[in-house]
Computed example of a mutant assay.
Amino acid sequence: MTPTDSTRFASQTVHVPLSERSYDISIGTGNLAEVGRWITSLRSVTHAVLISDDHVARHYLEPVSESLKSEGIRVTKLVVPAGEPSKSVATSQELWEKALADRVDRKSSVVALGGGVIGDLAGFIAATMTRGLDFFQIPTTLLAQVDSSVGGKVGINLPAAKNIVGCFWQPRGVLIDTAVLETLPKREYLSGLAEVVKYGVILDPEFFEYLEANVQPILDRDATVLQKIVARSCELKAQVVAEDERETTGLRAILNYGHTYCHALETVSGYGEYLHGEAVAVGMLCASRLGEKLGVFAPEATERQHKLLTALGLPVDVPKLDEAAILSAMQRDKKVEHGKLRFIVPHCIGKVVLTPDVPQDVAMQAWTDGYAS
Rank of each mutant, 00 (worst) to 15 (best):
V215R: 01
V117L: 04
W96F: 15
H55W: 11
V79H: 11
W38G: 02
S19D: 14
Y274Q: 03
E66A: 15
G30P: 04
Y274C: 02
G277I: 06
T2V: 15
N256L: 00
D53F: 05
H55D: 08
R43A: 14
I156Q: 00
L312Q: 02
L121W: 05
A279T: 02
L308W: 05
A48R: 10
G72Y: 10
V150F: 10
W367N: 01
R342D: 12
A194N: 10
G277D: 03
G116K: 00
S328W: 13
A281L: 08
E209W: 11
V75G: 05
V296M: 02
G155C: 05
R332L: 15
G192T: 12
L341W: 06
L203A: 13
A223L: 14
A126R: 01
V56A: 05
A301V: 00
V353G: 11
G152Y: 04
A366W: 09
C286D: 01
L190Y: 06
A161R: 11
P315W: 06
H259N: 08
E337K: 15
T141P: 08
G36E: 02
L68Y: 10
L42D: 08
A325D: 08
E97D: 14
K162D: 03
R8E: 06
T46F: 13
T249A: 00
A281H: 05
V75R: 11
V282R: 09
S67H: 12
M1I: 15
P17V: 03
R289L: 01
I229L: 14
V64G: 05
N163A: 07
E266W: 12
V282N: 07
A301R: 14
V345T: 11
V35M: 03
A329E: 04
V201D: 07
L285T: 02
Q305G: 06
T260W: 10
G295Y: 01
S11A: 14
L50Q: 12
Q145Y: 05
L354I: 10
E323M: 13
V197R: 02
D24R: 04
V358G: 03
L314A: 08
T248M: 12
E206A: 15
E300R: 09
G339K: 06
K293C: 06
L226C: 03
A179T: 05
C262N: 13
R289V: 00
V215Y: 07
V150Y: 06
W367A: 03
L341K: 06
E273F: 14
H276D: 01
E247I: 01
G350E: 02
D222W: 08
V196R: 04
E84P: 11
E337Y: 12
P159C: 06
T302P: 03
S88T: 08
G166A: 11
Q239W: 13
E206M: 12
P159N: 05
G272S: 05
L184K: 02
Y261M: 03
E235M: 09
P185L: 13
Q331E: 12
N163K: 04
G116Q: 01
D317N: 13
Y261H: 00
E278P: 09
A112V: 02
I125G: 06
D54M: 07
L255A: 07
L143M: 13
E243V: 12
M364Q: 07
S65T: 14
E278K: 10
K335E: 08
S149A: 14
E235F: 07
M129R: 11
V89K: 12
L354G: 10
E66S: 15
A279S: 09
S88W: 09
K307I: 11
G313Y: 01
V80F: 04
G250A: 00
T2G: 13
